[in-house]
Design a protein around this nucleic acid. Structure first.
Lengths: 123, 123
DNA sequence: ACTATAAAACTAGAAAAATAGATGTATAAT
DNA sequence: ATTATACATCTATTTTTCTAGTTTTATAGT
């Protein structure tokens, strides 16, 4: 019945069904990213949170020193609610943390992410 | 006329207008990211292109070896046109490159981006 | 060579889902 | 009461995904 030599594959690609299934399995064993649904969703959130020009400017300022929301509003000239929205995206992405100090919330870059910011000058 | 001590600033934030303007200027001098509109847009595109679960899976597979579109379709089980769209986003983001070989387009990870992929196991 | 066929990749367009940004209100600290 | 932040909601825009159709390349047959 089967007209082709490869069961389950109707493709003439370089690597057929069997080969790709094997490669996908190898990737799952190699990268923590692929081992749980949460892992991959966390990584996607991390990159997504950095994929916006305003948020990159926020990160650049936080690389120099910790800043509160109102300072960032002042420096980058965006509305408070918009700034708050962007800061929460960066918190969800694991890029920054906020700590309450009196009536201010001071935002701080997670040091662990520094190596993954290509625009940081490495001396 | 001015009721406050700081012209142009109505804020009692830790750092006021003058201070923030200075910090923003310092950031512009420090980070190439902030020096041209194209630079920041390129970085945003880079991160945006990685901020999607399907595209992270593509990158994981391309870390193992070069693959054509149809192999990725076979391995990740998404429609051809959807895969093509994601591959073009990754190309625009500077994460991968494609080269035509006969009727295939082989996609290849740009080696320069490896250090910025946190999910790569470093041995 | 010429034609027909099929595979692989690309493109166009639209529906569905997610996000950016604005407005207004609520909470917390001084 | 004032200031700083958080939140809830809404609209406009963007992104994701899919269907369908087109182009390019390779192969088979004549």
């Amino acid at each position: 019945m089967a007209a082709t030599s490869f069961e389950g594959s109707s493709s003439f690609c370089p690597a057929l069904g069997e080969d790709m299934a094997h490669l996908v399995q190898q990737a799952q064993e190699t990268f923590a990213l692929l081992q749980t649904p949460k892992a991959i969703s966390d990584f996607a959130l991390f990159y997504k949170s950095l994929g916006d020009e305003t948020r990159l400017k926020i990160v650049a300022l936080l690389l120099l020193r910790d800043l509160c929301l109102c300072e960032l509003v002042d420096g980058l000239n965006v509305p408070t609610s918009t700034m708050n929205h962007h800061l929460q995206m960066l918190v969800k992405g694991g890029v920054i943390q906020g700590r309450r100090e009196g009536k201010f919330t001071i935002y701080h870059l997670n040091e662990a992410v520094r190596p993954y910011l290509p625009f940081v000058e490495v001396k």
